[in-house]
């Protein structure tokens, strides 16, 4: 039995990573799930959320923006619409985006426009997530 997982993350714009890892945690449709080597094969829709992987004692974080994960006994393939590693996140930009989203949300709520509220909420969530993940960086 394999004791490593091959984690591959691809987005339409680039291959984010393809590495051997020990454990993967990702935001599945029905909640966060963890994968260790030898997992039962499954396929899931991924939500917006933070994901992480462990390599030895090191833990890395990423922001994931929708996608699919195909899990096999010795590999995890993630097809994401967007994905950023914690160390790639531009905190300043995320903070600015958060501010913008909050303003827009307040504005939209005043006018009570459904679509705008949804959109503003989604971008606020993305911004908050980025900030959270960026602050986590690497845990050992």
């Amino acid at each position: 039995m394999a004791n490593k997982l091959l984690l591959e993350i691809v987005t339409p714009y680039r291959l984010v990573m393809s590495e051997e890892v020990d454990e993967v945690v990702a935001p599945g449709h029905e909640g966060e799930f963890g994968v260790l080597p030898g997992h039962t094969p499954f396929l899931t829709i991924l939500k917006l959320g933070k994901m992480s992987y462990r390599k030895g004692n090191e833990k890395w974080f990423l922001v994931l923006n929708w996608g699919y994960a195909e899990v096999g006994p010795d590999k995890v393939v993630i097809l994401a619409e967007g994905c950023e590693r914690a160390e790639e996140i531009d905190i300043e930009r995320a903070l600015a985006a958060k501010k913008r989203a909050e303003e827009r949300l307040a504005q939209a709520e005043r006018k009570a426009e459904e679509i705008d509220i949804e959109r503003a909420r989604a971008s606020l969530m993305r911004a908050l997530l980025r900030i959270e993940v960026a602050q986590k960086k690497k845990l050992t």
Partner: peptide, 8 residues
């Protein structure tokens, strides 16, 4: 992977 395959 045939056999047991889970979907979420």
């Amino acid at each position: 992977y045939y056999g047991e395959f889970l979907y979420e």
